[in-house]
Amino acid sequence: MTLQELRAMREAGQKAMDRRVGGDKSIEIIVGMGTCGIAAGAKETLDAFVNELNSKDIRNVVIKQVGCMGFCHSEPTVEIRMDGMPDIIYGNVDPETARKIVHSHILEKKLVDKHVFDRPSKDIVKEK
């Protein structure tokens, strides 16, 4: 594939009908990709999100890779921000949990209870 072909595929993709989920705003998926995250499988988790969202034809998603979020013991960690749901940080998100998050949190707007991370490190996460 050349850069020109890449550009053409991008343009074709943008013209295709979007399936927007969860309102007009983009859904934000933030994946911790520090050494701790990567060692725990964050690359596979990110890849699983990409595959699952594509298979469900969900397009309005921004995926951000960030460094260590300070939850090394719960990696891979993933934060989901979207309309109609509170901002949630999930811990121990393996590929299977990533698929659950797409089905349950993003599509059905139900929390994936067992993976909700409810005690953020106070020195890093500012309270709202």
């Binding site: 991008r10 943008q14 983009s26 890849d47 990409v50 969900i58 397009r59 995926i63």
Partner: peptide, 11 residues
């Protein structure tokens, strides 16, 4: 940063 570009990058 969006899903489609990540998918295309991988491809």
């Amino acid at each position: 940063e969006d899903l489609q570009s990540l998918t295309l990058l991988r491809e």
